[in-house]
Simulated scan of single mutants.
Amino acid sequence: MTDTRFARMKDLPSTHWLGAGTPMCAGCGGLQALHQIYDILGNKTVFVNAAGCMTLLSIYPFTPFRGSWLYTAMGSAPAGAQGIRDALDILLEQKHIPPEEDLTTVVLSGDGSAYGMGVSATSGAIDRGLDFLYICYDNEGYGNTGQQFSAGTPHGAKTSTSKGPRGYPGYKKDLFALWAANKPAYVATVIGAEPLDLARKIEKATQLKGPRLIIALSPCPTGWDFDPKESTEIGRLAVKTGVWPLKEYQDGRVSHTKIPKERLPVEDYLKVQGRFAHLFEPVRNEAMLAEIQQRIDDYWADVV
């Protein structure tokens, strides 16, 4: 039996189609960024989707992507992308498909894979010069399985596996620096709340060849504990407070694409998220708040 709901959706632009009818959380910052990215990439794509939140976009036998889609285990999406890209190159070389039928190979992964178990496969793909675009939607935890902490979780945040009075004791890994150290063609940070910056970077990435990697901070209402309608504002605060620097790496150089003129205090960002509520009530944790602020200040002191 044909699902007419999905048949109708195929005729809609991707801004209406992507995520429609799927069990995604309201206010998902990752989906907000993906909407914008997909509008630029278009349907001549093949998405290699590592297990995670965005896997829920697919309802068998349908996916919201008008191009192609492949599901892989969490740590092996870059390896899957390698196989697809190699197959496309062979088909092109042997003239089994014309150039206009080529597809952009895209990895779609959460921070659980990107910051952790998928690092090895990603590094190998960069070393081989794989011509692909890697998109990490970073909601700073294993969002699909209950928001356990990941290597992308910020210091002090409460998660389902770091519930103590001080929250997560570790520090967020610098994935941008880790990827840039491998010298790919391009690395950039983006956020859906800054659509012009995001669009410029995705358009630049489409014009390049080789490994191109995008990290999208993805405010998560369920994991970060805030009202879904505040998702965009929290994204803007991440930039205005300097918590999420918008930057890019190319040809051995890192440049910042948006520098806050007057940074807001970091607590303006923290206090609107339930995962940091323990830093303010019942007693303000002045020491931890000062430490978090100082780390942000130290970062920007080296930039400006």
Rank of each mutant, 00 (worst) to 15 (best):
M1V: 12
R8K: 13
S14A: 12
W17T: 12
L18K: 07
C25G: 07
G27A: 07
G30Q: 00
Q32K: 10
H35P: 07
Q36P: 06
D39K: 12
K44H: 14
V46C: 14
C53I: 11
Y60L: 12
R66W: 02
S68H: 14
W69L: 06
L70M: 13
T72C: 11
A73K: 00
S76I: 11
Q82E: 09
D86C: 03
Q94R: 13
H96P: 02
D102T: 05
T105D: 03
G110S: 06
G110Q: 05
G110D: 01
D111R: 02
D111F: 00
D111T: 02
G118F: 01
R128F: 03
L130K: 02
L133V: 09
Y134I: 01
C136F: 03
E140Y: 01
G143F: 01
T145I: 14
Q148P: 08
G156D: 03
T161K: 11
P169W: 04
K173T: 01
A185T: 12
A185K: 08
A188W: 09
I191W: 00
I191Y: 00
G192N: 05
E194Y: 13
L196C: 00
L196Y: 07
A199H: 14
T206S: 14
I214M: 13
T222P: 00
T222I: 11
G223A: 10
D225Y: 12
D227G: 03
S231K: 07
E233L: 11
I234Y: 09
G242D: 08
V243D: 08
P245W: 04
P245A: 11
K247R: 15
K247Q: 15
Y249F: 14
T257F: 06
K258S: 01
K271V: 14
V272E: 12
Q273S: 05
G274I: 03
F276P: 02
A277T: 00
I292F: 09
Q293A: 15
Q293D: 14
D297Y: 06
D302G: 08
V303S: 08
